[in-house]
């Protein structure tokens, strides 16, 4: 059985819209509009979409914070809302902009409090904590109150806090938001390391597609409450016709009317000494073999940001 199952999952919100000076009208807005998804054990999946697409709402329904308006949801075989406390022992949650830690206490104390709250045996707790301390370099600030930590340090603490009870699913809501480049790298390599074990299922929402490229084989794109893409990143590129590009620098100008079947000439610059091709159906070699006086070349991988932007606009 799949670890996470969503069947026709739907969440409607009622909003009051101003209609005239004093009147307000009720309007029902579907935040999540009939989502069908399953995630298997050990899967690492990215869940992305523009602001207000329904990412966080889905995550809240999966963690038992929100009740679905209709449809079915199971996580670890449990119904999130009615079996909330039971489920809580099996999942870890990191909300990028909210804290699970005690603001005024050192990290060390927060961790030991969490051990009691989740009723974790002392040795299991110690083992997991040791691993996180090593992988996340926590030792330098274990005794600093959380309020004095930098955002990157705090996020490393949050990740540890979410893992100390050995959850089988980890939900991450924008775990890299606001972090500097170095902290982002640290968080990503830690999550990648976790994923290697193959036991932990990881679902993360993000606005930073580099997170997805680094971590997730599977990418789910949601827009206006519906899933618009579910598959690998490569499948996304294939579907939206984004191709690799070849940029060549030449010693002599590119001849007029130069053409290679399967490659599209996108632009010429520098008095025709530089040209860019999109490799639609052909490979680098086919273009290069037709060129004379080639000085230098580079291949540009398709940009996932562009593809996703295209997807959001569609």
């Amino acid at each position: 059985m799949s670890l996470i199952q969503m069947h026709n999952l739907r969440k409607d919100f009622t909003v009051r819209v101003k209609a005239g000076r004093f009147r307000r009208e009720k309007r029902i807005v579907p935040a999540v509009n009939g989502v069908n998804l399953t995630f298997e054990r050990g899967e690492m999946a990215g869940y992305i979409g523009p602001n207000g697409a329904g990412k966080s709402t889905t995550l809240k329904m999966l963690t038992g914070v929100l009740t679905p308006s209709s449809g079915d949801v199971r996580v670890c075989g449990l119904q999130p809302v009615p079996q909330r406390t039971k489920l809580a022992l099996q999942i870890g949650v990191v909300f990028g902009q909210r804290s699970q830690l005690w603001w005024d206490l050192p990290l060390r104390d927060s961790f030991s409090l969490l051990r009691h709250i989740y009723r974790v045996p002392a040795d299991a707790h110690a083992g997991r904590l040791k691993r996180c301390r090593e992988l996340l370099d926590l030792d330098d600030f274990m005794d600093t109150p959380v309020r004095q930590l930098s955002l990157g340090q705090r996020m490393r603490g949050e990740l540890t806090a979410a893992l100390l009870h050995g959850p089988s699913v980890l939900f991450l809501d924008e775990p890299t938001i606001g972090l500097d480049v170095v902290s982002k790298q640290a968080v990503r390599s830690f999550l990648a390391e976790l994923g290697q074990g193959g036991d932990l299922t990881l679902v993360l929402t993000t606005h930073d597609l580099a997170d997805i490229e680094r971590l997730c084989r599977r990418l789910v794109v949601i827009d206006h409450g519906s899933v618009v893409h579910d598959g690998t990143i490569e499948a996304l590129h294939a579907r939206y016709g984004s191709h690799r590009r070849l940029v060549v620098d030449l010693d002599v100008p590119l001849p007029e009317g130069f053409a290679v079947p399967g490659a599209e000439l996108l632009s010429v610059e520098a008095d025709r000494h530089r040209a860019t091709f999109e490799l639609v159906t052909t490979q680098v070699g086919a273009v290069v073999s037709e060129l004379t006086a080639l000085r230098d070349l580079s291949v540009v991988e398709p940009d996932i940001e562009d593809v996703v932007a295209k997807l959001y606009r569609a």
């Binding site: 999942i91 699970q100 009723r119």
Partner: peptide, 14 residues
């Protein structure tokens, strides 16, 4: 407002 309520709801206690 600050989301503490959500944080509380994902813990295994009332």
């Amino acid at each position: 407002r600050t989301g503490t309520m959500d944080a509380v709801l994902v813990r295994p206690l009332a």
